[in-house]
Amino acid sequence: MMQEQQWIDDARRGDQEAFAQLVRLYEKRVFALTLRMCRQPEDAAEAAQEAFLAAWQGLRFFRGESSFSTWLYRLASNACVDLLRREGRHRTAAGPSLNDEELNIDAPDTAPSPQEAAERKELQSQVEAGLRALSPDHRQVLVLREMHQLSYEEIAQVLSLDVGTVKSRISRGRKQLRKLLLESGNFSAAPPSKETGKEGCK
């Protein structure tokens, strides 16, 4: 929007109030991203703060080759990975994980029974345990792809990677997560993937 672009232009020239408007515009979305990657609210808040600080310090170098939101997501995602690596934490992202088709889970057409709800909750806990074992790099791409529904091209922009690397990391992350779920004994082996011919379509 034009107002946003004006704030960006003014903030680039050092206008702190304009930058504060950008923070207010994006703080909820940035925190949602960092919370999914870091899980703990205090870690997520720290990563979000680092991302906005990096944005303020680096705004004069922002040339608009990608959208401001994409650039900000990149800073937030990198801040999360840095925090996880720095503190040696491998915490899972919050909320549901990979989509039902990828996990071979049949979503019920009606409200789940108590037993079904308990089973799905148990599966989610296993997924979270698996995500904790993934490297920050693999968790990073899975969060952006499966939870924030970014395309391969958008993830490539956010992380400054080529699309092939993004696809490779997502594939490896999914395979590692499946392996961990299979080893847990609470996940049945999936049939041959229907995704083979669809990779990169989104």
Rank of each mutant, 00 (worst) to 15 (best):
A76S: 08
Q149G: 07
S135P: 01
S66M: 11
W71C: 02
E87A: 06
P108D: 04
A111C: 05
S160D: 15
S151K: 11
Y152N: 10
D162S: 02
N78P: 00
E102L: 14
S168W: 11
Q57A: 12
E154I: 01
N78F: 08
G64S: 02
N186L: 14
L103Q: 02
L123M: 12
T70F: 00
E146W: 05
P96K: 11
E122W: 14
N104T: 02
A76N: 04
K179C: 06
W71N: 03
L59P: 01
D100L: 05
A133V: 08
A111S: 11
L144Q: 05
S69W: 12
S67L: 06
L182D: 04
R63H: 13
G58C: 07
L103C: 05
E146G: 00
A79F: 05
R91F: 14
E122C: 08
I155S: 03
E122D: 15
E153K: 13
V158C: 11
Q140R: 13
Y73S: 04
E183W: 02
M147I: 11
N78W: 10
R60P: 00
F68Y: 15
S135N: 01
H148S: 10
G164F: 06
A79K: 01
I105N: 00
R145E: 06
S135M: 08
L84V: 03
C80H: 03
S77I: 03
W71V: 03
Y73D: 09
R63Q: 15
Y73V: 09
Q126F: 10
N104C: 13
P108S: 06
Q176D: 13
E183K: 13
L150G: 00
G173C: 10
L84Q: 13
N186D: 09
S125N: 11
P114L: 08
S66N: 12
Q157L: 13
F61M: 09
E119W: 09
K121C: 07
V166I: 07
D100G: 01
T92A: 15
L98P: 00
V143I: 14
V143L: 05
A117Q: 13
M147S: 10
D109H: 10
L180D: 05
L59C: 04
A94H: 08
L159P: 02
D162F: 03
N99V: 10
L177A: 02
